[in-house]
Amino acid sequence: MSVRDASHDWDRSRVWDLEGERGVHHYLKVSPSQKFFTRESRAYRHVVPALGHTRAPHLIDSRAQDLVMLLTAVPGTPAKQLGLGGAEWRAVHQQAGVLCARLHEAGELERGDRAEAAASLNAAADGAEKYLARTGDRLTQDEQRLIRDHAARLRRVGPVPVGFIHGDNQPRNWLWSEQGLALVDFERTRPAARVQDFVILATTQWADHPDREKAFLLSYGRKLSDAEQQALRCLTALDAVNCLAWGPANGDDEVTARGRRTLDRLMREVRP
């Protein structure tokens, strides 16, 4: 057996690619926390099977005391790394919309899950002050005011559809191959407002490519409701301040740039 480090480029990521007889691959993952282990192992048992046999890894075994999971491998390369053209990106988003819909509709939420999902937008709004405190002087007074205003608006958007979300729904977790698209990395999968799964896409992929958004939502099966559209705008503002708190603190220029770009766009829309 050969072992290759397959961790992401952050210090709490611990994943190994295990290649056994006849080139069969498995992945050994050590979760960064008990919360992530609980979310991901539960997702593999109760939510991920709804995606289909080849559309996500499957959990072979787990060891809770060590936060370890042994997973099957699925074919493909992260879409982000492939240098895809416009038509290829639309095809990727079309399949992502299908898989996202399956995930969001994967079974009835239990009572506790439904309560957690119903509270998820307020929980997101609650994080605004924490992230604002961490940004220090990187935001102007007007920018801080905009963040607080969107946090307050988020609390007033009203009921939106809920379900299990992926939680980190973006092309680095979409594996693309000749067999189609597969989703990976379910450590943030949880009951929440479904629209929360579109925030990173809205601030990156869809910001300059509305054709990709159109392809995604067409295969997702419906347009976003007015309440979801309002929530998404507010959530992008909160994502911006989160990025501007986390990115500089962790030396992640890409995340920092995402936050700055989103915040600049929102400021222009408020004050053209």
Results as ranks from 00 to 15, higher is better:
Pro75Phe: 10
Ile147Gln: 02
Arg153Asn: 03
Thr38Val: 13
Pro191Ser: 12
Arg212Met: 04
Leu235Glu: 00
Leu139Pro: 07
Gly112Arg: 15
Met69Lys: 15
Gly247Met: 10
Val98Thr: 14
Leu175His: 02
Cys100Asp: 06
Arg111Thr: 06
Gly83Ala: 01
Ser219His: 14
Trp206Glu: 01
Glu88Asn: 02
Phe216Thr: 00
Asp252Pro: 05
Gln196Lys: 15
Val199Trp: 00
Arg12Cys: 10
Lys80Trp: 08
Asp168Gly: 08
Leu103His: 14
Gly259Val: 12
Val30Arg: 14
Pro210Ile: 04
Glu254Leu: 09
Ala106Tyr: 01
Val255Gln: 14
Gly158Phe: 05
Ile60Leu: 15
Leu146Gly: 02
Pro191Ala: 15
Leu51Phe: 04
Gly52Leu: 04
Asp253Asn: 09
Ala207Gln: 11
Val241Pro: 00
Glu108Ala: 15
Glu19Val: 12
Val199Asn: 05
Val30Cys: 13
Ala87Met: 13
Arg233Tyr: 10
Ser62Gly: 00
Gly85Asp: 12
Arg260Pro: 02
Leu82Val: 06
Asp149Ser: 13
Leu70Arg: 07
Arg102Glu: 11
Leu51Arg: 05
Phe164Asn: 08
Ala73Ile: 06
Asp137Tyr: 13
Leu218Phe: 14
Gly23Trp: 01
Asp239Glu: 14
Lys29Tyr: 00
Gly259Gln: 05
Gly112Ile: 11
Met1Gln: 10
Glu108Lys: 12
Glu108Trp: 03
Leu59His: 12
Glu108Thr: 15
Gln144Phe: 01
Val48Leu: 10
Ala245Lys: 03
Gln95Ser: 10
Tyr44Ile: 12
Gly127Met: 13
Glu213Leu: 08
Leu238Glu: 02
Gly158Arg: 03
Pro191Val: 11
Leu70Asp: 09
Ala101Asp: 09
Phe37Pro: 03
Val3Asp: 15
Asp252Ile: 07
Asp197Lys: 08
Ser7Lys: 09
Arg39Pro: 02
Ala151Leu: 06
Arg194Met: 03
Asp239Ser: 15
Glu105Tyr: 02
Arg188Pro: 07
Arg190Pro: 07
Leu109Asn: 05
Asp11Ala: 11
Ala245Val: 04
Ala128Gln: 02
Asp253Thr: 15
Asn122Lys: 07
Lys35Leu: 10
Arg265Val: 07
Ala73Lys: 12
Ala202Gln: 01
Asp239Gly: 07
Ala64Pro: 02
Val74Glu: 03
Cys243Ile: 07
Gln170Met: 01
Arg22Gly: 10
Ser33Trp: 05
Gly76Cys: 14
Tyr27Gln: 07
Glu228Lys: 09
Thr236Ile: 11
Leu175Arg: 01
Glu269Asp: 13
Met69Trp: 11
Asp11Lys: 15
Asp185Leu: 11
Gly97Glu: 08
Leu103Ser: 09
Tyr44His: 08
Ser7Ile: 09
Val157Asn: 06
Phe198Pro: 00
Gln65Tyr: 13
Asp185Ile: 06
Ala240Pro: 04
Ala193Lys: 09
Pro78Tyr: 05
Arg190Ser: 04
Leu28Arg: 06
His93Cys: 04
Glu254Pro: 01
Val162Leu: 08
His26Gly: 00
Val157Ile: 13
Asp211Trp: 12
Trp174Gln: 01
Glu254Gly: 03
Ile200Thr: 05
Val255Pro: 06
Glu88Thr: 08
Arg4Ser: 13
Lys35Cys: 06
Pro191Asp: 05
Asn122Val: 03
